[in-house]
Amino acid sequence: MTITDISHRKMFPARGNVYLPHMVVINKIIDEAPDVRTFHFNFKDKALSEKFTFESGQFGEFSVFGHGEAPFCISSSPTRPDHLECTVKRTGRLTNALHRLSVGAEIGFRGPYGNGFPLEELKGKNLVFVAGGIGLAPLRSLIWNVLDNREDYGKLDIVYGARSPADLVYKYDLASWQKDDRFNMAVTVDRGDEKWQGTVGFVPQVLEHVAPSAQDAVAVVCGPPIMIRFTFPVLDKLGFTSEQMITTLEKRMKCGIGKCGRCNIGNIYVCRDGPVFNYQQVMDLVSSEY
């Protein structure tokens, strides 16, 4: 069965007006990197906070009223439900508006949407996380999820890189992860600066150097398209099969529910059928427009 066969497509329960956002309030803003901020937020409606569940890898539609809405993955872990987080790079109208907001501001949220990472399939496996730049955001949700249930998983490797030391996101997490001896971590930058004492090099090269075993392992990859393109061949060389590589595809999703049409890759709608796919599925897509 290939991805283009949609007979096993996930169905969703009918509910009211899916387009109506819930009000959420920003209660913390962290400057991660130039133009990148993380927003911590909670539902205004306390009852909803208790009821709300999601899976790592799922995303939400965020509204800044007057500026529209846009999808961002939830970068916090469902194992830490006291608040939600999303990390946003300033690139356009909506993200500019979001970056202008301060703590206490009210925005809209609807979701969660998308399939999320296949947690059940990952259990018992050795995991290799490969991320570049802000691509760490969806993986971070999964990483905390895994760390909070550490005994369910085997060996863990993280290879994370950014263009420069300043572009590394979640530095506070990186610091705590680096001290954690429950897993192996490599942080790299494309170009260092005078203070940088860590590894310098592109993510795929560092991954090749770390050389995690493909035995009982799954690699979870997210980053800019160029990084993804060069990472898959390295994983292949390390013995990972295309089913052992998972990625989450970034596409210009709009409605989040598979209707507005713009995120299609062939017959697949990234927002409705993804955004998480394994590499075999990506190769099976009708179109290479991903």
């Binding site: 387009y19 009223f65 809405e69 209707k259 507005c260």
Partner: peptide, 21 residues
């Protein structure tokens, strides 16, 4: 049926609209 979703707001009043794309 492709569509776009946009906000139109002036002052504190406005609306979210869907339009064909």
């Amino acid at each position: 049926y492709c569509f776009d979703i946009n906000d139109a707001m002036t002052g504190g009043e406005g609306s979210r609209c869907r339009s064909l794309d």
